[in-house]
Amino acid sequence: MHKIKDVMSRDVQVISPDATIAEAARRMREGDFGMMPVGENDRLVGAISDRDIVVRGLAEGRDGTAKVRDVMSDGIRWAYDDETVERAALIMAQYQIRRLPVINHDKRLVGILALGDVAVKERKVKPAAEALCGISEPVPA
Rank of each mutant, 00 (worst) to 15 (best):
L58A: 13
E83F: 00
S73E: 07
P127G: 01
A119R: 11
D18W: 12
R123I: 02
L115P: 10
L44I: 14
V125P: 04
A25Y: 05
I53F: 05
L58F: 15
L132E: 05
A129D: 08
V125F: 11
R98T: 03
H2T: 07
L90I: 06
I76G: 00
A93W: 00
H105Q: 10
D106A: 14
D11T: 10
I53K: 03
D6E: 15
R108N: 15
E83M: 00
D52R: 02
R69T: 11
K121P: 02
M1I: 08
V7I: 07
Q13I: 15
F33S: 06
A47K: 05
G61D: 07
G57V: 05
R108H: 15
R51C: 11
M1P: 09
N104Y: 13
V85E: 00
G57P: 03
R108A: 13
V71S: 06
G57T: 06
T65Q: 10
P127D: 01
V85H: 00
I4P: 00
R62K: 14
G134R: 05
G34L: 11
L115Y: 12
E83C: 00
V68W: 01
V14Y: 07
K126R: 10
A128D: 04
V110G: 09
I21E: 01
G31A: 14
P138D: 14
G39R: 09
V125Q: 12
A114K: 09
V12K: 03
I112A: 01
D117Y: 03
V38N: 07
D18H: 14
I15A: 03
R123D: 12
E40G: 14
G34F: 08
A88W: 01
R26K: 15
P138F: 14
P17I: 04
K121E: 02
A24L: 10
D6W: 06
R51G: 09
C133M: 11
A88I: 03
E137M: 15
N104I: 10
